[in-house]
Amino acid sequence: MTTAEPHKSSGMGKDIAVYVGLLVLAGIQFFIAYQNISVQQMFERMLIVAMIEAGLALLFFMHLADNRGLRWFVLIFTVLVILGMQYGWTDSYRLINGVPWAH
């Protein structure tokens, strides 16, 4: 029985390319912070960029791109848990808009 995980060898070139990509994406987040847009728009755009960054880091820095089974395992559990937390947003809107002392 083997316990060793099969490794796909790839050079440092890809790692550096991903690193530069992450720096650029981080720069985009800082750029968005200075845009004259609403907080909600800013939040959405920054979150999209952050998710792309996280995807790149997971796939290439943490090598999930090399293991399809593990990739789905991590993705399904993490996404389900995070999605499960989103039920509370409606209550936060109720607190700021719906309660008698709002505004």
Binding site: L22, A26, Q29, F30, I32, A33, Y34, V39, M42, F43, M46, L47, V49, A50, E53, A54, A57, L58, F61, M62
Partner: peptide, 19 residues
Amino acid sequence: HFVDLVWMFVVPLVYLLNL
């Protein structure tokens, strides 16, 4: 790398949205 990944969410939500 995970610690780095978390920071990618902390920066925009906790810092940049409060600029």
